[in-house]
């Protein structure tokens, strides 16, 4: 039980919980925890969820860059793994179209009482376990050969961070 109390303070845990509830309610209200809405987007018939997602990224992008410019936050960039991110995205997309939830929205949908989402979560636990089991081989064959470190669009375009928002 020692790891239960390890490291993270209660206030940080509470912040995580509150952020999760707020994030989950926004997703629920936008309809992104509905299979029919997600498939409507992927079948190119109903773009409500796409509008929701892109608005989120634009607003968050502006906020994050403003706070970064004011030295109030650090960026937390994931390295670019060209092949793993492309292949992972493709495998993810097949699962996404079949399930109609992503790993986060599936948890919300399960909370709403949608049993298909709960089966998706159990499958997800298995999928994560398969990944962990084969991680050494995947790392050597797919991940590391495409690892080019952290790259942002602004660094790739050679403009200072913050500027690209005004272009």
């Amino acid at each position: 039980m020692d790891y239960l109390m390890e490291g993270t303070s209660f206030s940080v845990l509470l912040l995580g919980l509150i952020t999760g509830i707020a994030f989950g309610l926004a997703i629920y209200k936008a309809g992104a925890s509905q299979y029919d809405k997600i498939l409507g987007m992927l079948r190119l018939k109903d773009f409500a969820i796409l509008k929701f997602m892109l608005t989120t990224i634009i607003v968050a992008g502006i906020g994050v860059h403003v706070l970064f410019g004011m030295d109030m936050i650090d960026l937390s960039l994931k390295p670019v793994w060209i092949w793993a991110q492309l292949l992972g995205g493709i495998i993810f997309g097949v699962g996404f179209a079949l399930l109609g939830y992503c790993p986060g929205t599936g948890v919300i949908a399960a909370g709403e009482g949608k049993k298909d989402a709960a089966f998706g979560i159990v499958g997800g636990l298995v999928g994560a376990g398969i990944f962990a089991h084969f991680w050494p081989a995947l790392s050597a064959s797919i991940i590391e050969p495409g690892n080019i470190g952290t790259v942002t669009l602004s660094s790739a375009l050679g403009v200072p961070i913050g500027i690209e928002l005004y272009l």
Binding site: A60, V80, G95, L98, I143, T150
Partner: peptide, 29 residues
């Protein structure tokens, strides 16, 4: 589908929230 979803997400080092939304807002490639 869940198996594919999380295998893909772990291979890509993140899912819709961690990779696409958090990364996208930081303009991460």
């Amino acid at each position: 589908a869940g198996v594919l979803l999380l295998f893909g997400a772990r291979l890509a080092n993140g899912c819709t929230s961690g990779n696409f939304i958090s990364g996208g807002s930081q303009l991460a490639l």
